[in-house]
């Protein structure tokens, strides 16, 4: 347990509680073992009968034309880029939220508002460009 506490030495304003990552690591291991075990058991128990038609990609009975990994619409890509931008923003907001709750200085608030305002400009740009629309 000591090692887990050393990792947690970076404590925030939240208080002097320990962070224990060892149980998380154990749960990760158990979750993966559970998933793999379930699949292995299912693969062993179930029977398998193959056939050329059964082997083909499922397309509601129609003979498939071409590969499924084709080019897809650029919107998915653009949405992913906008998401990256905003998710990084959210991640930056978390430590600020904890600090601001403890500190409550107008400077911290103004700082984050400036940061959000800059992002808001990008948001308005994306909106006007039609990035956020799917129709």
């Amino acid at each position: 347990m000591r090692a887990a506490f050393v990792i947690a030495s970076l404590e925030s304003a939240a208080g002097p509680y320990p962070s224990d990552w060892l149980p998380v690591a154990m749960l990760v291991l158990i979750a993966v073992v559970f998933a793999v075990g379930t699949l292995a058991l299912s693969a062993m128990v179930g029977r398998s009968r193959r056939g050329p038609v059964k082997d083909s990609p499922y397309e509601a009975g129609v003979v498939p034309v071409g590969d499924a990994r084709r080019r897809f619409h650029v919107r998915y890509y653009v949405i992913a880029m906008v998401f990256l931008l905003f998710d990084v923003e959210v991640v930056l907001l978390f430590p600020w939220a904890v600090l601001f709750n403890a500190d409550r200085s107008g400077f911290l608030l103004a700082e984050m508002f400036v940061f959000l305002a800059i992002l808001a400009v990008g948001y308005v740009y994306a909106w006007r460009k039609g990035v956020l629309r799917f129709d």
Binding site: V90, F94, A97, V98, F100
Partner: peptide, 16 residues
């Protein structure tokens, strides 16, 4: 969802 959690964390003062 993340932003809502931020606004709650802001009030509660902790990510725990």
């Amino acid at each position: 969802a993340g932003l809502v959690v931020v606004s709650i964390v802001l009030v509660a003062g902790s990510l725990r």
